[in-house]
Design a binder for these strands. Structure first.
Length: 375
DNA sequence: CTGGGGAAGGGGCCC
DNA sequence: CGGGCCCCTTCCCCA
């Protein structure tokens, strides 16, 4: 998989995600060179495709994680949808030195926990795409808080091997410079009182609850402390793969799936981050097109593609050039129009016309089992 | 070159 | 908190 470490294009639309391996992976390259001449019968697929797809939840490592943290830290080109108006939940942060230290620390931590010469994910043979019903539990090192208020001592060997029952304290971020201190001299800024030399108590600065271990306090602060609501720093979680930061654990978990790609297609092996993405992909194998246009009866496998198609039936399309007034069904077309030179100075990039969308056709609640959805 | 279709990505929201 | 769904966006390909 190609990863372009080069700079992002200055153009807002061209090759915006050329550097991003998560975006638009080539499909054809990953399909079998000789696809089966007789695809499985849809009747047989029906029971498998939606529920028996291989959501390989055990495979917590991406097959081809081209988003190498070290590369990203060098280039600063993190996968991002910052240009998208929808991407408000994630905060793109600049790479910081301690984040690299963090990655190094996690690497060392993993190597200590996995003494085998080669990590299993690297030595993993070609997937057989067998159904693996084992539930997946995210290792905590994937879910650590990004900016912990308190860091553990700088010697990870002092911390026990993590287990699902006690994950939080084992693989914590490397200490920030201000945290490189003895456990008995905890920061004054955090308000944590651990002055007792022998049995220090770790106190939550928000609710004053104290814990005998840092692990206990850390867990409390991350998951239980209601008084810490609104504390962005304490509630931010960063991805170890790309340094994206999220304010909720769920959002981070969702994002991590884009790296681990736990859902694999039985037919071609292509991996996806979410089951419904795999569902859509499987439609490319079965030819199922449950979304049909009520104007021309053309069918689509993807609702968004139908929505884009509906624009072609509209005289006034969704995206219009404020310079010349021409409307376009897709933003990309408008962008091309602008790049080609609309010629009207001062024209804003585009004008969004949501009213041009045939919403009445789009927003129908569609049962998942409905064979055809007419719009 | 333009417009459209196909496929896929991710975040947000709701249950 | 997780799954499912919605919506928007992007990239590639082709007519």
């Amino acid at each position: 998989m190609l990863v372009e470490d080069s700079q992002m294009s200055s153009s807002p639309m061209t090759k915006k995600y050329a550097h991003c391996p998560l975006k638009k992976r080539p499909v054809r390259e990953e399909r079998p060179a000789t696809p089966p001449t007789t695809p499985p019968h849809p009747a047989h697929l029906a029971t498998r495709l939606y529920y028996d797809y291989n959501c390989d939840m055990e495979n917590d490592e991406p097959e081809n994680l081209s988003t190498k943290p070290e590369d990203l830290s060098k280039t600063g080109n993190y996968p991002s949808k910052a240009s998208s108006p929808m991407s408000t939940a994630s905060v793109k942060v600049e790479p910081r030195e301690w984040q690299q230290q963090h990655l190094d620390y996690l690497s060392a931590c993993r190597s200590r926990l996995e003494p085998t010469p080669a990590p299993p994910e690297l030595a993993r043979p070609t997937p057989q795409y067998a159904y693996l019903p084992t539930l997946y539990t995210y290792p905590f090192e994937e879910l650590y808080p990004a900016t912990p208020t308190i860091s553990p001592p700088a010697h990870p060997q002092l911390y026990p091997r993590y287990s699902p029952a006690s994950p939080p304290s084992s693989c914590s971020p490397p200490p920030c410079p201000e945290d490189l201190r003895s456990p008995g001299s905890v920061s004054s800024d955090s308000g944590v009182s651990v002055s007792a030399p022998r049995r220090p108590r770790y106190q939550c600065p928000d609710c004053a609850k104290s814990y005998s271990t840092y692990s206990g306090l850390s867990k409390h602060q991350q998951y239980h402390c209601a008084a810490a609501e609104g504390s962005l720093a304490r509630k931010s979680f960063s991805c170890k793969f790309c340094a994206k930061v999220y304010t909720s654990l769920g959002a981070l978990k969702m994002h991590i799936r884009t790296h681990t790609l736990p859902c694999k297609c039985h037919l071609c092996g292509k991996a996806f981050s979410r089951p419904w993405l795999l569902q859509g992909h499987i439609r490319t194998h079965t030819g199922e097109k449950p979304f049909s246009c009520h104007h021309c009866r053309r069918a689509f496998a993807d609702r968004s593609n139908l929505r884009a198609h509906l624009q072609t039936h509209s005289d006034v399309k969704k995206y219009s050039c404020t310079g010349c007034g021409k409307t376009f069904s897709r933003m990309s077309l408008l962008s091309k129009h602008l790049e080609g030179g609309c010629g009207v100075a001062g024209a804003s990039p585009y004008e969004y016309r949501p009213e041009a969308l045939p919403q009445s056709h789009v927003h129908q609640a569609l049962p998942p089992t409905a064979p055809v959805h007419a719009y």
